[in-house]
């Protein structure tokens, strides 16, 4: 990868990775929020055709594969920029004494990792969407993953505001 640094600065390189990580996270957040809404409050037949109805009327199974791919890609980019974060972002935040911010970020790292490990069973449950025995587990696992995704997104956003691009 060193040849890239012949054309762009080190800061620009890591900033591009952080932006890609953020864009993938936005796509993941949107997809999993739609899916969670669809399983928590599915659109009823004959319901008024408003924004909320359309928001929750998505086909959950169609989102499952994309969500798995987006989670893995977002995770890979996050794991990549984590090395830069550990040296150039975390140490200065420690010196500023912002320990709760660091703790919240550590929790994000733990939860997204656990979410990564749950993707195979998530994918399996959505692949067998016609099996009624899986409905409850599929619904609540989707909600848990969506909650993890929201927490991770907001924590990442806060940390980026504390010390993000160009660090």
């Amino acid at each position: 990868m060193d040849f890239i640094l012949d054309y762009i600065s080190v800061n620009t390189f890591w900033t591009i990775l952080a932006i890609v990580h953020a864009l993938l996270a936005v796509a993941l957040l949107g997809a999993i929020t739609h899916q969670a809404a669809a399983v928590l409050a599915p659109a009823r037949a004959g319901a008024a055709e408003g924004f909320v109805t359309h928001f929750r009327a998505v086909s959950g199974p169609r989102y499952a594969g994309a969500i798995c791919v987006l989670w893995v890609l977002t995770f890979i980019f996050g794991a990549w920029i984590y090395t830069r974060y550990r040296v150039h972002v975390r140490l200065p935040i420690e010196q500023e004494g912002l320990f709760k911010t660091l703790g919240a970020f550590e929790l994000k790292e733990h939860l997204t990792t656990i979410g990564l490990g749950l993707l195979p069973v998530y994918w399996y449950l959505w692949k067998n969407v016609r099996n009624a025995a899986y409905t409850s587990a599929r619904k609540w696992l989707t909600v848990v993953l969506a909650a993890i995704c929201w927490y991770a997104f907001l924590t990442g956003h806060v940390l980026n505001n504390v010390r993000g691009f160009g660090s």
């Binding site: 939860l111 656990i114 069973v121 998530y122 449950l125 587990a137 609540w140 848990v144």
Partner: peptide, 15 residues
Amino acid sequence: LALAWIAPVVLLPVL
């Protein structure tokens, strides 16, 4: 099957 979502919920306070 419920362990799939119960496990992360139970582990959250531990984390």
